[in-house]
Simulated assay, not measured.
Amino acid sequence: MNTYEEKILDELKKWEIEMCKRPSLWNKATKSVQTKINEKIPQKVHDVITTSMKHMIKATLIGSEYTTKRTIKFTADLRERDYKLQERLAFYKKTAAVEGAGTGVGGILLSLADFPLLLGIKMKFLFEAASIYGLDVRDYKERIFILHVFRLAFSDPHKKKEAFEKVVFWKETIEEFPARPDSIDQMNWQELQQDYRDHIDLIKMLQMVPGLGAIVGAYANYHFLEDLGQVAQNCFRWRLLMDENSKLHKHKKHPR
Rank of each mutant, 00 (worst) to 15 (best):
M1Y: 13
M1G: 10
E5Q: 10
E6H: 10
K7I: 09
I8N: 01
L9G: 06
E11D: 10
L12Q: 12
K13T: 15
W15H: 08
W15D: 09
E16C: 03
E16K: 10
I17G: 12
I17R: 12
P23G: 06
L25G: 14
L25I: 06
L25H: 11
N27H: 04
K28M: 08
K31F: 09
K31I: 15
V33T: 12
T35D: 13
K36Q: 14
I37S: 13
E39H: 13
I41Y: 01
I41E: 04
I41N: 02
Q43N: 15
I49N: 05
T50H: 04
T50I: 14
T50K: 12
S52L: 11
K54F: 01
K54I: 04
H55D: 15
H55Y: 13
H55G: 05
M56Y: 03
L61D: 02
I62N: 03
Y66S: 00
R70V: 09
K73G: 15
D77N: 12
R79Q: 12
R79F: 08
D82K: 06
D82T: 09
D82M: 08
Y83K: 14
K84Y: 07
L85G: 02
E87I: 07
E87A: 11
R88W: 03
Y92K: 09
T95G: 07
V98Y: 07
T103V: 03
V105E: 04
F115G: 08
I121F: 00
K122D: 14
K122T: 12
M123A: 15
M123N: 11
K124D: 00
K124N: 00
L126F: 01
A130D: 02
V137Y: 00
D139I: 04
Y140E: 07
I144Y: 01
I146W: 00
H148P: 05
F150T: 07
F150E: 05
R151H: 02
L152G: 04
L152Q: 11
A153I: 03
F154C: 04
S155Y: 00
D156E: 12
P157W: 00
H158Y: 06
K161Y: 03
E165D: 11
K166A: 14
W170A: 12
K171W: 08
K171S: 11
T173D: 07
E175G: 02
E176W: 09
S183P: 03
S183E: 06
S183A: 12
D185E: 13
N188R: 04
Q190K: 14
E191H: 04
E191I: 06
L192Q: 03
D195Y: 01
D198I: 10
G211F: 00
I215W: 10
V216I: 14
V216H: 00
G217N: 05
Y219Q: 09
Y219I: 15
N221V: 13
N221D: 15
H223N: 12
H223P: 01
H223F: 07
F224M: 14
F224E: 08
E226H: 08
D227P: 05
D227N: 07
G229V: 02
V231Q: 06
A232H: 02
N234W: 05
C235M: 03
C235K: 01
C235R: 00
F236E: 07
R237V: 05
R239Q: 07
L240G: 01
L241P: 01
L241S: 05
M242A: 12
M242W: 04
E244V: 09
E244F: 02
E244Q: 09
E244T: 15
E244C: 07
L248R: 11
H249Y: 10
H251G: 13
H251A: 14
K252T: 14
K252S: 13
K253M: 15
R256N: 10
R256C: 08
